[in-house]
Computed example of a mutant assay.
Amino acid sequence: MSYFESKDRTVFSPQNDKLLPLYKVLKQYHPTIGGSNLFEDLVETYEYLDFVFKEGKVDECITTK
């Protein structure tokens, strides 16, 4: 399991491989924009998606019109 430290949290590699590209982008840009509000919002979204995939609730978080 891979991880990196960001501000007040540890960001772990995803449990679902579908999120691996996003994790790699976050890890790559952490030295440049880590700690910014934008970066923290992206990390929160990433962690939420990882949770949703883990819980199997993907369909509930996707809305279509």
Score class of each variant (00 low, 15 high):
residue 52 V to F: 02
residue 58 V to E: 14
residue 47 E to F: 00
residue 10 T to S: 11
residue 61 C to K: 14
residue 44 E to A: 14
residue 16 N to C: 11
residue 49 L to H: 02
residue 61 C to L: 10
residue 14 P to T: 03
residue 33 I to S: 06
residue 27 K to F: 01
residue 16 N to G: 04
residue 41 D to S: 15
residue 7 K to F: 13
residue 31 P to L: 04
residue 23 Y to D: 01
residue 61 C to S: 12
residue 14 P to K: 03
residue 24 K to I: 10
residue 30 H to E: 10
residue 36 S to F: 04
residue 15 Q to W: 01
residue 35 G to I: 05
residue 45 T to L: 15
residue 26 L to G: 07
residue 57 K to C: 10
residue 18 K to L: 12
residue 7 K to C: 11
residue 5 E to G: 02
residue 15 Q to N: 14
residue 9 R to A: 09
residue 39 F to C: 05
residue 52 V to H: 04
residue 24 K to R: 15
residue 26 L to N: 06
residue 22 L to Q: 13
residue 1 M to E: 08
residue 15 Q to G: 15
residue 54 K to H: 14
residue 16 N to Q: 04
residue 1 M to C: 04
residue 31 P to G: 08
residue 40 E to T: 08
residue 15 Q to I: 10
residue 48 Y to G: 06
residue 64 T to Q: 12
residue 48 Y to I: 07
residue 60 E to G: 05
residue 2 S to Q: 15
residue 21 P to R: 05
residue 13 S to V: 06
residue 33 I to K: 08
residue 28 Q to P: 00
residue 59 D to T: 15
residue 42 L to E: 03
residue 3 Y to F: 12
residue 48 Y to L: 14
residue 60 E to S: 11
residue 61 C to Y: 11
residue 29 Y to N: 14
residue 27 K to I: 00
residue 13 S to F: 03
residue 34 G to M: 02
residue 20 L to Y: 11
residue 25 V to C: 10
residue 64 T to D: 08
residue 41 D to A: 14
residue 61 C to H: 13
residue 57 K to W: 05
residue 3 Y to N: 06
residue 12 F to I: 06
residue 42 L to A: 11
residue 21 P to E: 05
residue 53 F to M: 13
residue 52 V to L: 07
residue 2 S to M: 10
residue 62 I to K: 07
residue 30 H to C: 11
residue 42 L to Y: 04
residue 32 T to R: 12
residue 15 Q to E: 12
residue 6 S to K: 07
residue 13 S to M: 06
residue 62 I to M: 10
